[in-house]
């Protein structure tokens, strides 16, 4: 016999609970920083961009909808936009400088360390930002293919293909360096 508890409140589908921004920031700060570090290959710049990402995220925290994406994906998307904005302005600045000052003398400054082994770092530096980005999302942050594709704004298969290419290239460079 089926019994019904009339006093029990009806079961309703609830939206995922929203945490405070501070809690979300505390949990995902490392991930966002790692992602931006891989994307820019520059620790100082990555720190600046990470801070800017969280500043923007705080401003639009009210509009974040947990049903549409996870906090990490949402933060990575913001981080990506911040980085792209930076690259854009940097590219404009470089063009302006080249126009006004002719050829810019290449400075022989040693690239800053990223925190990996020297071999891996050297190999990573041969990749493009786009290739490093997919490695960061799929391997360092361990996002699944769908979430990574959402951050990149591409399809799942395109994302998998990018990853295979980037990882293949990285492995190839590492192998070549080891032989040398």
């Amino acid at each position: 016999m089926k019994t019904v508890n009339s006093l029990a409140p009806p079961l309703t589908r609830r939206a995922p609970l929203r945490r405070s921004f501070a809690a979300a920031a505390e949990e995902h700060l490392d991930d966002v920083h790692r992602y931006l570090l891989m994307l820019t290959a520059d620790p100082t710049l990555a720190e600046d961009l990470t801070a800017e990402t969280f500043e923007k995220a705080l401003r639009s925290w009210r509009r974040y909808d947990p049903r549409r994406s996870s906090e990490r994906t949402w933060l990575c998307r913001i981080g990506r936009n911040v980085a792209l904005d930076h690259f854009r302005s940097e590219s404009r600045r470089r063009r302006r400088e080249e126009r006004h000052a002719g050829e810019v003398a290449g400075s022989e400054v040693a690239p800053p360390e990223l925190g990996f082994s020297p071999e891996l770092e050297a190999a990573l530096r041969t990749l493009s930002a786009g290739e490093r980005e997919v490695l960061a999302l799929r391997i360092v942050l361990d996002l699944d293919a769908d979430a990574a594709a959402r951050v990149l704004g591409v399809g799942r298969s395109a994302c998998s293909m990018r990853l295979a290419r980037a990882l293949g290239k990285l492995e190839e460079r590492m192998a070549a360096d080891a032989l040398a």
Binding site: T40, A41, D42, L84, F87, R88, E90, S91, P111, R125, T126, L127, S128, A129, G130, E131, R132, E133
Partner: peptide, 9 residues
């Protein structure tokens, strides 16, 4: 942009 800011970061 991502290609340009690639190997020569």
């Amino acid at each position: 942009l991502l290609e340009r800011s690639g190997p020569a970061a």
